[in-house]
Simulated scan of single mutants.
Amino acid sequence: MTSQTESRDNPQALPASALPYRPCVGITLINRDGLVFVGRRKAEAGPEHVSGVHAWQMPQGGIDPGEEPPKAAERELFEETNVAPASLRPLGEIPHWLAYDLPPAVMKQAWKGRYRGQEQKWFAFGFLGQDDEIDVERPGGGAHKAEFEAWRWAPFSELAGLIVPFKRPVYEGVVAAFAPLAAWSAGA
């Protein structure tokens, strides 16, 4: 039997079902052509993100203590892509949280084994800026470590096939919720 002290000091001693989900936001950035920003994660960005050809994903990241999810979404997007809040048009929010569990081998490595996966609040934004605003090599005006090594615009129909398989159900939910927003610029 594991004591509370051992569990606190070594979260990996707990069964996966006893671990919490990491609170996180996900961002679907849609350009005027109805395409979605995806970035190819750097291998050193963490084991939870990269698996061979499934290295592409939409921006996402943790919510800081006391931070509201919409502000976390704007902050994370800026820290990963350099896209400033002034270049965003809010389009939608999935009203519920989407969660995924990490595979056991990845769970032991990611976030020091403290979480079973992530629970994500997803937001969609229309991109009002120009492509040259996006800078994944020096995101956040150069103040943040690059997590992506490349980026591109992709159609909604490709998104679920780009992500690591254990995150695929979340991406399918995001596509179902936000694909109708692809024509947002027609009404702008």
Rank of each mutant, 00 (worst) to 15 (best):
V83F: 00
G61T: 09
T81E: 00
L19E: 10
H96A: 09
M1L: 08
V50M: 10
D132K: 02
V136I: 14
N82F: 00
G117T: 13
P95M: 07
A154G: 05
R89D: 03
F156I: 11
P155R: 14
K145T: 13
G129W: 00
V106F: 07
S51D: 14
Q60S: 14
F78K: 01
M58F: 09
P23G: 01
G113R: 04
A45L: 08
T2S: 01
N82I: 00
Q4G: 10
K121Q: 15
A73Q: 09
P104E: 03
E149W: 03
G34K: 01
S87N: 09
E74G: 00
L128W: 07
V175W: 05
S157F: 04
E147I: 10
A179D: 08
A177N: 06
R40P: 08
S185Y: 12
V136F: 08
D132L: 04
E48F: 06
D9F: 11
L102Q: 08
T28A: 15
A99T: 14
T5K: 15
W151C: 01
R22S: 14
V164I: 14
K145G: 08
H49T: 12
A177R: 13
L162R: 06
E79G: 02
W184E: 04
A188W: 13
P59R: 11
P47I: 09
A86G: 07
P165R: 05
F125A: 03
D135A: 04
G26Y: 07
A84T: 15
F78C: 08
R41T: 12
P139K: 00
E6I: 11
F127E: 00
P165H: 00
D64Y: 03
G39V: 06
F148E: 07
T5G: 08
F127Y: 15
K71R: 15
R168G: 03
P23D: 12
P90W: 09
F37D: 00
G142M: 06
N10C: 09
G61F: 06
R40K: 15
F125R: 03
V106E: 10
S87L: 07
A84P: 01
G61V: 11
S185P: 10
P47N: 13
H96Q: 09
T81V: 02
W151K: 03
E74R: 13
Y115I: 07
V136T: 13
I134Y: 01
